[in-house]
Design a protein around this nucleic acid. Structure first.
Length: 225
DNA sequence: AGCCAGGCTACCG
DNA sequence: CGGTAGCATGGC
């Protein structure tokens, strides 16, 4: 929580998920109208932004919107070629076009129900980070989202060695934090904001003002024996 | 010019 | 199991 507070002092509330073309997110609005449209856009954005930029994902979503395909049925109705062309700015166009189809039919089968983490993980194209992002940002389930940036920051602060399992890192946070959706929402977003500034280029953490304040001596290296 | 994105799956040993 | 090559890009 001390690191969280420091990040909040630095950057202020982030108000994630950034969302797509249909819904304009306003700072501080965490309980936006959870329309099926907005919920589905989180699914789509979560796939499109994988190992990619938000700018690219957003361009792809704008193309889908223009094709009136920002819905599960709309996506399933597109020809492969058209869907892939829409996805292009988000990289991996064949892969992600396929993922979007699988996610779309999965979403239809839900019929508005909130899926479990395991159900999400069974969908091709949804791994752990994507599943947790969907649970948190689409369905308001309090889970902590771990990503590559989270790892880098924790390594720099001496809290992990770096090769820990995803779920181990997630439970580190969930044990320390109050089970508050808004804290999980903001914390992940703040870590991304912070990492974009200090952890996107090697050497990771150079110039990070938090290191002085929060770095622990004890580094949990696995190969320390 | 080069480096880097908020991963995931399939396939290898 | 753990490790990693490969995935049809665009922006700073």
């Amino acid at each position: 929580m001390r690191v969280y507070d420091a990040l909040m002092d630095l950057y202020g509330p982030q108000g994630w998920w950034p969302l797509g073309p249909s819904v304009r997110y306003h700072r501080g609005e965490y309980r936006q109208p959870a329309t099926p449209q907005a919920v589905f856009e989180v699914y789509v954005g979560a796939i499109l932004t994988q190992n990619s930029t938000w700018s690219g994902a957003c361009q792809a979503m704008t193309r889908l919107w223009a094709l009136k395909a920002m819905t599960p049925r709309g996506i399933l109705a597109l020809a492969d070629e058209v869907l892939q062309e829409a996805v292009r700015p988000a990289r991996y166009l064949r892969q992600k076009a396929g993922y979007l189809r699988d996610v779309s039919s999965f979403y239809l089968h839900l019929k508005g129900r909130v899926p479990s983490r395991d159900e999400l993980l069974a969908v091709r194209g949804i791994g752990k980070e994507t599943a947790d992002s969907i649970l948190l940002y689409a369905h308001h389930v309090p889970v902590f989202v771990v990503d590559a940036y989270t790892r880098r920051i924790l390594v720099a602060l001496g809290r992990i060695g770096g090769d820990e399992e995803y779920d181990m890192i997630r439970s580190m946070f969930e044990k320390e934090l109050p089970g508050d959706e808004i804290v999980y929402n903001e914390y992940h977003a703040l870590l991304v904001e912070h990492a974009r500034r200090y952890y996107s280029r090697k050497p990771y953490g150079a110039g990070d003002p938090l290191i002085r304040k929060f770095r622990t001596r004890r580094v949990a290296r696995k190969d320390a024996e």
